[in-house]
Nucleic acid binder design. Sequence first.
DNA 1: CGCCAGGACGCCC
DNA 2: GGGCGTCATGGC
Length: 270
Amino acid sequence: MDYYVKNNNIIVHEKDFDLDETLDCGQAFRWKKIDSDYKCTYTGKFINDELTVSQTEDCFIFHNISEKDFLDKWFEYFDFGTDYSELKKIFSQDETLAKACKYAKGIRLLKQDSWECLISFIISQNNNIPRIKGIIQRLCDNYGGNFPTAQALSQESPESLAYLRSGFRARYICDASQKVNSGEVNLTKISSMPLEQARTELKKITGVGDKVAECVLLYGMHRTEAFPVDVWIKRVLAEYYPNGLPEYISADAGIAQQYLFHYMRTAVSA
DNA sequence: CGCCAGGACGCCC
DNA sequence: GGGCGTCATGGC
């Protein structure tokens, strides 16, 4: 990856990156595609920092941000410090993963906020992606366009959250908010715990089971060995990996999972 | 209309 | 410890 400053923009060259594949592959729910003269443009936020980013034929434009903000925030968010060519080379020793990596070459694992991830993936359970986005949108709209803090959400009740139309998940959102706000569940500490201990801590929240805990670890804490298994990954495992996953992916199994999920959901079943 | 969705929980054995 | 019904809501 390399970049330079031009006017008020940061211009990035990175071949292992595609906005559609990265921002709309079920790992994040709050990026919006907007009309532009570029190949595509998205606008979104990390915590309270807003970004508009475009993809052209040969580069990416991070609009209207300083070099410092780019390096301090977005470089990390988009995981530009990791060489995805190297990862894909390792994954592609396996036949199915080779196809998945070739199918969507530009997927990257975003380094998202753990709190937002926790609530987002609680909402995701037994739900579909368009509706997950809608619920999160209604939630953020209610807080001036920002994702509410644990402190703010801990004031709510399942009844007061009725406007979300999140169904049975509302009481899970409340339990998570209260436990995080009180410190009973400490996301910062959990992020550096041994994996099994971290899972146990996250599952103290009502509504957080194996799958949601794994998603929080992977997407919100960048624990790349975490491996969420949803209905699509269950299909991949049953169809292509009856004897389990290859050992050589284990350190970054979660990233491999992201290619497999997208491949199965949009290519194989289409 | 019926089936399904980036599941978790409670209850049963 | 594994199997099964239930839980809201709405996308398709």
